[in-house]
Design a protein around this nucleic acid. Structure first.
Lengths: 217, 217
DNA sequence: ACAGAACCGTACCGTACGGTACGATCATCC
DNA sequence: GGATGATCGTACCGTACGGTACGGTTCTGT
């Protein structure tokens, strides 16, 4: 259908400014507040330009996702000089970053947008969100786990399964509850404690102690 | 604002039939397919009746949630004659039921609806979904865990924390990925294996063995 | 059998939004 | 300085939807 989908799809500074304004509107009032006329007024551009740049409204939403994803590039960890303490610290960093990202305003708003949009027009937005957002996180975590396994700090049969367990230990049911605006679900000040406990539990499940090995299966 | 909110809010058979039809429309085409005119046509009723029964469109959506919740009443487990095997089986049942519910068509559609609607009109739908859906699940799991702890099968300091960990081990990141229609995320045939592994891991974290106690903290 | 209520089907209204068209304005380049 | 192209602001169009009104029909209770 669309041919410009897999391209890097870079934007001009003006377009990026407009996309940032669009994100603000989305944060303030949800999807319904993000109308073409409203965005044109807020960003001081013409509707005609919006359609010229992004094609249609769905193209605009997709552009917002790729634009946001391009801002938060996850850094890849260096595999140098990895001892157990550093490995544990890296896991903690990952857990904290994950909670920080998933609990961020923009991420929550974009996820709400994509989820609400799902089931209509296929699910381009959902795919985009996963492709440009989660993929990076998954790869970073996968590389980290693999490094830890090679050094003998942890043991597992299925890396994906181990990663998903780690993810579950960290995020629990927080993501959906935050997406639903559940009162009290979003408490960033507790993220550090959650991350700490999750990594602790992950080591109980997959860590290699000197005397006993906790093999999940 | 609304006074009929906390009432049991029972519906006539005709109204329930209409609500069922509304759920079907929502499943087929998402929120956009659920218009008052469309529902009136599909359910062979008049729009006037819809507004008389449910007030407005948001009232209709809320009624759909309470209606659906009234159908899947979670049975509470009897605490009689609980040995370790039965406790473990109960946990397995809970895990399977949880995955079954969260992965069900109706649950996913209603969650998408509530999440997409969130941030506008407060978040009545999200609250309703949590109140009438998750609350029951939480209570059932809480009672189950407490029974297991009293019998000495598991140990924990904070029941909520233990429950959330159990939830995370079971659901992982599946819920959001299913909400996003991620390809391959929804595979009900694998739910049993996931439940099995989750319960296994939960016992590693919180279970009490004869010789060693795995205390998470 | 009759009255009254509930309900159906349809028509109608106002509005809001996506998308297009067009003249005016501004920047750029020769 | 003048032509060219991009962009702005605004006006406009069609449509779809939420919500209301109303006449005709069916159901219910007496």
């Amino acid at each position: 259908m669309r041919e410009t989908q897999d391209a890097p799809e870079t934007f001009t500074p003006r377009q990026r400014a407009v996309l940032d304004r669009a994100l603000e509107l989305l944060l303030e009032g949800g999807e319904r507040a993000l109308t073409t006329a409203g965005l044109a007024r807020a960003a001081r551009c013409s509707k005609e330009s919006l359609y010229k740049w992004f094609g249609d409204r769905d193209g605009l939403l997709a552009a917002m996702i790729t634009h946001q994803a391009s801002k938060v590039r996850a850094q890849i960890d260096d595999g140098a000089a990895l001892d157990l303490a550093r490995f544990r610290a890296h896991l903690m960093d990952f857990a904290n970053d994950l909670l920080q990202v998933l609990g961020g305003d923009v991420s929550l708003a974009l996820n709400r947008l994509a989820i609400g949009q799902a089931s209509r027009e296929g699910n381009r937005l959902g795919e985009l969100l996963i492709e440009r957002g989660r993929r990076g996180i998954d790869k970073r975590a996968g590389a980290l786990l693999e490094a830890g396994r090679r050094r003998g700090f942890i043991i597992y049969d299925d890396r994906d399964a181990a990663y998903h367990t780690l993810y579950g230990l960290i995020v629990r049911d927080l993501h959906v509850r935050m997406l639903l605006y559940e009162a009290g679900a979003r408490q960033p000040e507790k993220f550090a404690a959650l991350a700490e406990e999750a990594v602790e539990q992950f080591f109980v499940l997959f860590g290699v102690r000197e005397n006993m090995k906790a093999i999940p299966a």
